[in-house]
Design a protein around this nucleic acid. Structure first.
Lengths: 237, 237
DNA sequence: CCCTTTAATATTGTTTACAATACGGTTTAC
DNA sequence: GTAAACCGTATTGTAAACAATATTAAAGGG
């Protein structure tokens, strides 16, 4: 007998995050921060030991990461960390640009100062981390900055999609971060964006958004070609 | 001991689709075609019996459908079919318009006639199905039409993202399909799109793409408001 | 008569064991 | 000496049993 779930109770979710999601995030973090290299195998039992859980949740997590495009799963053989070809990177960045520009176009102006202040706070963190060479904090403060910025657009679907595509290429940012001038340029971009927000100058914000997306894929592609040659059209991995 | 997977063998995947994916697709189809109503419960064991498999795969499938936004999963209570609020629908369609317009903007012209012929073939199917009142075939031929059309853009990430968002709102098309004039209008839109493709008239194609996306959300929102009142800002479900 | 507590049961979440598969190395046939 | 067949092991895929949780229904106390 199936018992109904009462409509009134649905919205109050107990807010406890499923274990599989947490594991997926941890593995994802490892991948995008370069702690796990492309082509490295992800063996279910090893991950169980590592995260103190059972294979069911690990399988769920790997399944999700496959859908996200971060790992490749081969039937009966297992999962491995997936790298991105220059072609894929270019395509993802093209779509990101379209969506992020859309987001800043529809942000309702003027923006509530409390959000601008939040951005400034994050930007201070970011700058301090850059100065200290703390790449982990650089990564996370940068992440939060963009989440707050695009969150201003108010379209939940758009925010979610931007997030989705950003996740796919988290890993390649480290290539640009290797050059101090890239980090500094990103820092200045952020400051200019805040100024544009304050002044409700939408066109400036759009231009900055476009410019901000350029260096990372370029650095990645250059590094890739130095390593593997100019094999743009090679299949993924 | 973990044994490496040789690089050379990776691309040749055995092409056998994981069971969980197949099940997810079947359930998705049931939902979007209205065979399962919003708020209906999806009990794991029932689905196991139905699809002749074990709970592991079913859980995987439900997990994926949750990520896609088609079902809601409440910890320790199970999964249920999720409906969409008018706000969500509007937001999704806004992003769809942006992406689909981007796609037709970057289609390399002129288009190889063989693809145009494929579109015409699908359109004949669609027209016949509309005339016969065969809504299932209407659905699938329409689906293929758009897949082929946007597939022309050549950006795999863009194609995938368009597909993702289209899936989220498959279900609501039935609302527009209830009105014969909507079906007829969609049919004429498709024919005009084919003509624009043949003539490499990009601006026409862009305008048609925008227009083509209007009726479905409007019909859904009207139906929703007739049923629940104008509660736009209500939380999901 | 209503509110709280308690038990029964449906359902999900976890654990474990087992079967199927794939790869590496070794043996065997020619 | 080479190539095909075989076996061992690592790993994934499947199944079933068990534990935890939530919901309904019933019992008890005010």
């Amino acid at each position: 007998m199936v018992r109904p779930i009462k409509p009134g109770q649905t919205p109050v979710s107990p807010a406890r995050e499923p274990v599989a999601i947490v594991i997926a995030k941890r593995i994802e973090e490892d991948i995008v921060l370069g702690r796990r290299q492309p082509r490295e195998r992800l063996v279910e039992q090893d991950l169980c030991d590592l995260f103190q859980t059972h294979r069911g949740d690990v399988r769920l997590a790997l399944f999700e990461l496959e859908k996200k495009g971060l790992v490749e799963r081969i039937p009966n053989r297992g999962a491995l960390v997936r790298g991105l070809t220059p072609l894929e990177v270019r395509e993802i960045y093209a779509v990101r640009e379209e969506l992020e520009v859309m987001a800043v176009r529809i942000i309702p102006f003027p923006v509530d100062p409390k959000y601008v202040e939040r951005l400034e706070e994050l930007q201070r963190q970011h700058t301090a981390a850059v100065a200290a060479g703390d790449l982990l904090t650089v990564f996370y403060s940068n992440l939060s900055f963009h989440q707050v910025l695009f969150g201003l657009c108010g379209n939940a679907c758009l925010i979610e999609t931007i997030e989705l595509l950003a996740q796919k290429v988290y890993g390649i940012r480290s290539y640009a971060n290797a050059f101090p001038e890239s980090l500094d340029r990103a820092r200045r971009d952020h400051l200019d964006m805040i100024k544009a927000l304050r002044g409700s100058r939408r066109d400036d914000l759009v231009a900055l958004t476009r410019r901000h997306l350029k260096p990372s894929p370029e650095a990645y592609i250059k590094a890739y070609e130095r390593r593997f040659g100019k094999a743009d059209l090679a299949p993924a991995q």
